[in-house]
């Protein structure tokens, strides 16, 4: 299945990537040829085959509800690109309306 420029732009938006025009062109071509390879799978009959989500089947281990030490706020915030006091600071979401 070929992928269109518009689809590439849509996906970029979903993935929060602001692709340049040149990137859109390049990715449209490259993703198209990768998808061509991938589409060969659709010829394979997988009716009734269970999907493998975990290569080594196991049950989910469960943790006892015991609170441990928290990371001190200073350490939690140490890598923040921008902070304000003990908060992470981000630009406001400007709604469309």
């Amino acid at each position: 299945m070929a992928i269109t420029r518009d689809e590439v732009k849509e996906i970029a938006e979903l993935a929060r990537l602001s692709l340049s025009d040149e990137e859109v062109t390049r990715f449209t071509g490259q993703l198209g040829s990768i998808l061509e390879h991938i589409d060969a799978l659709s010829a394979l009959d997988t009716t009734g085959i269970e999907p493998t989500t975990h290569a080594v089947p196991m049950d989910c281990p469960l943790r006892e509800d015991v609170a441990g030490a928290a990371l001190p706020a200073e350490r939690a915030l140490a890598a923040a690109p921008v902070r304000s006091g003990d908060f992470f600071e981000v630009p406001k979401f400007v709604s469309g309306s």
Partner: peptide, 22 residues
């Protein structure tokens, strides 16, 4: 619960900002 859904970080309501993480 005493700890979070997916880790042992504590869950005190009203604690100082960003002090209940891991």
């Amino acid at each position: 619960t005493a700890s979070k859904m997916f880790s042992a970080a504590p869950t005190h309501f009203g604690a100082a900002p960003n002090s209940q993480t891991d």
